[in-house]
Amino acid sequence: MIAIRTGQNILDVAGNISWIDDKSLRLIEQQHINQALVRIPRGWISRGNGQEHLTAIRSPVLTGAGGCGAFFIAQDGLSLRAPGFCNVNQLFDANTEQVSSLELLRGLTSTMYGSNAVHGVINVLTPNPFDTQQSNFSMSIGPHDYSRGMFSVSTKTEQYGFLFYGNVTKDGGYLQDSGFDQQKFNVIHQYQGGKWQIKNVLVVTNLNQETAGFISGFEVYKDAALKRQNPNPEAFRDSQSMRVYSQISYVENDTTSFSITPYIRSTDMQFLQHFLPWQPLDENSHNSVGVQAQFQKDYGDLTWLSGFDVDFTQGQLREMQADTFSPTLPAGIHYVYKVNASV
């Protein structure tokens, strides 16, 4: 569904597309999204501390606004963040550990995904309750106080499917004061009856991370007394996100289809910018509501595709600094603003 938001034969996609299916993801059992997407050619997720990351798709590893503004990152075709409100680490807003597949489209893509899809698209696909065979639970443990529990509870009838799944992770971190606690929960309710299909999805995530800074010094990694020290024990990142949407589709004779997807999206994040010498505290959030609608008609070798996207977002950001760094960077509030955006 990555090219035109509907199922397609991979040979019919006009683009460089790769994907990782659920069997491969179960084999990987990733602890970080880097471990999965590193298997896709020309795609690279640079692993940061905890769950942080930077993205590259046929590009350098980009940071700052370019680190997210140049990529379209989505779940079931819906952007994880509102247009203009992206974050370089936004993939931790998705339960990539328990998806049905990960899709990656490399290179400049269709305007269907907006101006963000400059270098490529990453699309996270949620499972289908009708394809889920049974409920399960698993537990993983590892060094540095790492532990993770994953679960899935499913039930289905001829027309209705229900799936509740999620994971809870605790990691003490390799460096001092560098661990994180993370929780991700998904609820899916699906209906299939004749020409109609409806998929209702609720996603909730929470991340509480103690962020580590970089150790500097020549060959310091060889010094056992220094290589686990954290030069920024005060650094942290707390992030919460919620998305709820309903994918409603109608198919007539395999040649005519219509779909509409209303959605609500919310994120809230606070983090200390330890990578800046003056270390300001950043607090940002946004709430949005929108809808995607699409009509498709096939005329033999010709396909007519039309539709519209609407998104209304209210966002805000507040940055303050505890101590004076210089006359131009005094203690106190640096700026506070709110934005109303419509697309």
Rank of each mutant, 00 (worst) to 15 (best):
S249E: 15
F275R: 08
Q190V: 03
I10C: 07
G193L: 03
L202D: 08
Q209L: 09
D282F: 06
K199F: 03
K338V: 00
H274L: 00
D177T: 06
R318E: 02
D181R: 02
I10E: 10
T267W: 00
G77F: 04
L80G: 02
F164Q: 04
N16R: 01
V203Y: 01
G50H: 10
A82G: 12
G43V: 15
F130Y: 13
E219Q: 13
V336Q: 14
L329K: 15
E52L: 11
I248M: 14
F185Q: 13
F308H: 05
D311A: 05
I141L: 09
S178V: 00
N167G: 04
V88A: 06
P280G: 02
T6K: 02
E210Q: 09
S259K: 07
I45M: 15
F71A: 01
I188A: 06
E52F: 03
T303V: 13
Q292F: 15
V291N: 00
T205G: 10
Q240Y: 12
N95F: 00
S79F: 02
V153R: 12
E158Y: 02
F325A: 12
G50N: 14
A224M: 10
H189T: 15
T267P: 03
S138L: 10
S24I: 09
E219H: 07
L207F: 04
N230C: 06
Q190E: 13
G161M: 10
T324K: 11
Q182M: 07
S147G: 14
V124P: 01
A331S: 15
G64R: 00
H274P: 08
C68L: 06
S138I: 09
